[in-house]
Write a protein that binds this DNA or RNA. Structure first.
Lengths: 198, 198
DNA sequence: CTATTGTTTCAGTAGTTACTGAACATCCAA
DNA sequence: TTGGATGTTCAGTAACTACTGAAACAATAG
């Protein structure tokens, strides 16, 4: 073996905050991370992003890009982009340590708050446009728009269906609103009210 | 142009129930279908399946495989598989017409009922396993399992996070349960209770 | 200024999911 | 019993998404 050969392991800096915790703890954390990632994937959130978030949440300690890379075995690029996306969502935060150049990231700790944030965003991005489309559809079928065709069987049926959907989405939206308006601890209360009332 | 050339358009059978309704109505329906498909895609439901469901829902009339194929420009295979999947979900139903071999499909008409069905299924498939994993994680960190390590800082933090998540998911699950238990019209009531209580 | 450390971006590609089209199965009417 | 109409399945492929690795960029220290 030539002396010039390079072994990155030998010159790796010791970690400032050694992540490789006790193996038992680590196994538990990994379980959680994996499952959280799977769930995310099903709900249309990219698996890796969900896993990064799970990691930050479960450890409860700020980690840097390299920590995330090492622990989840993903590339620097992926880490960087996913961390940024999570920041954009607002469920993790950037953190600077005095006297350190490196950036750290930490998860919000309140699950209710995170849920509120996500729910609000998804409502805005995904429900609102649909509701708007439905309202437009209803308008387009008003007698003023289509004249005597308004009495056509097919039109009547379609209008009924649109009305049903509109009612559902409006009510759902209001519930959403309530959940989201009552941030943090309030949320918890909201749910308890509901459970008692039933 | 050789006389042997074949033009499928010329021999196409006239439709038994001509789907091509009034163009104005059709435009409205298409809008709804497109938007519903987009939403489905975002929520992890395949776009085509969502579109087929939207079509059946919005027309409010039983359609056969060919109707679906023609209207959405998809292949027979795709139609067949997607329709089956929707039947499995339970939000559309097969329908036989006396004296006809061809099968028809129709959507449930009650949006609340459809929502209940979907919510129940997704809870069972996606939330329940996660909650179970979390419970297992909590167990694995009990002093009985890990001895004096239980007082380790990192372990304490992880346990706290797991507890937070467990509480959230348990409560969420109960709410889900309530929604789903009170099928159909009951659902509507549930929501009204919630809105009033706040 | 240059070296060092850390971050962002992105072209190319691996991996995944959705879809088609054709072969096959089934049923019914003639 | 045969042919046409309908329904199902699935291998192959198109379309899409996620990821890597490397280069460009930014900030700071010496």
């Amino acid at each position: 073996m030539p002396v010039t050969e390079f072994n990155p392991d030998e010159i790796a800096e010791p970690r400032v905050v050694p992540l490789p915790v006790d193996p038992q703890l680590r196994r538990v954390q990994d379980d959680f991370i994996r499952k959280w990632g799977e769930m995310g994937a099903i709900w249309g959130i990219n698996r890796t992003m969900a896993e990064i978030h799970a990691l930050l949440y479960i450890t409860g300690v700020p980690l840097c890009t390299d920590d995330v890379m090492d622990r989840l075995h993903i590339s620097r690029g992926n880490s960087s982009m996913s961390l940024r996306a999570l920041c954009d969502w607002g469920i993790i935060r950037r953190m600077h340590r005095r006297g350190e150049r490196r950036e750290y990231f930490e998860s919000l700790s309140d699950v209710w708050e995170m849920f509120s944030i996500i729910a609000a965003e998804r409502k805005r991005r995904e429900m609102d446009p649909v509701l708007e489309t439905i309202k437009n559809c209803i308008k387009a079928l008003e007698p003023a728009q289509i004249g005597k065709l308004a009495k056509d069987d097919a039109v009547v049926r379609t209008r009924q269906r649109l009305d049903g959907m509109e009612e559902f989405m409006s009510v759902t939206n209001k519930v959403f609103q309530q959940f989201v308006g009552n941030a943090k601890s309030g949320l918890n209360k909201v749910v308890k009210v509901l459970l008692k009332a039933l």
